[in-house]
Amino acid sequence: MTMEQRTLDQNEYVQRTLKNKQEFSLKKFFLQWEWLLILVFLLVIVINTSLSPYFLNAAGLRDATMVFLDKGFIVFPMVMIMILRDIDISVGSTVALSSVIMATLYNTLNVPMGAALVICLLVGALCGLINGLLIVKFKELSAVIVTLATMILYRGIAYVILEDQASGNFPEWFSFFGWGSVAGIPFILIAFTILAIVFTLLLHKTTFGRQVYAMGNNDTASRFSGVRVDRIKVIVFTLAGLMAAITAIFLASRMGSTRPNVAMMYELDVIAMVALGGISTAGGKGRMIGAIIAVFIIGYLQYGLGLINIPSQTMLIIIGLLLLVSVAVPKMKVNWKFKKSGSKRKLE
């Protein structure tokens, strides 16, 4: 062994202490995606206010919030699904199927509304459970194909049950979900806030959430580390189904009825919100709070554009562009850093 090697070895054995307090970096703190989102959110408010005098109207904003928040419930589990590098495009169909079953149980089979609600939640969770089981059992099938199939399937079943009919006549109290308020605050906003806190804690403060991130970054290493990868995936997809059923309840309550073609394209709005929220489709990155801000950005953007009579087709263009920019900007940021530092490390 040469001298050089020996010194090297000795260095290896020198007891070093590692810090276990993270240094706070102001620059890092402000370089977070969420700040940009808050900026975009404020921009949306400012532009909307300057374009329409009706925008900053308490009652108007309140009603608008009640309209777009229903799909926001699905955003929570979708964040986890996309961190897992998967996707679920069947959630809109799950909303339709669970609400149609709920309405049919109450109207045709005379099941009490309370029981119908519970069954609605169970149906949604079952839809998600089926997705999850299929995805972990048939590893060669990607989540997009599995949920494409069940998207068609669940919607199809909803049509078979109700044909092209609407089903309403819910009891009086049921309208509370969609229209009720507590102390002037819409009930849906309260529910959304509570669930937002629950899901934020679940993702960021529990061992479950940590394992979700681990799987999104490296599925194989997670398995080798004893993470029960299949189980976690099934739970996350089941949560997506359950949240879709909650959306179904709020939607049916607000509309006063349901039909098999409700919640069309909800999955796309939800995925757009999650992507804008900074959850990378490459998996493993992003935070719940970003997606929550994105729900409000897209919601108020749509409302504002509606107020100044922009046709819904044009609205699609604007939201499409916003989404493109939002997924492209982080890449540009990384590229720029890459060039500036002259680092030879390859980008993912």
Binding site: T207, R210, A214, A221, S225, G226, V227
Partner: peptide, 25 residues
């Protein structure tokens, strides 16, 4: 290993149930 993660998170990954308290980190 999860390369994108810190040393600490990697070390704790296979011991999460021991580190957690009823599921909380």
């Amino acid at each position: 290993l999860v390369l994108q993660w810190s040393i600490g998170r990697n070390i704790s990954l296979s011991a999460l149930s021991a580190i957690g308290n009823k599921g909380w980190l």
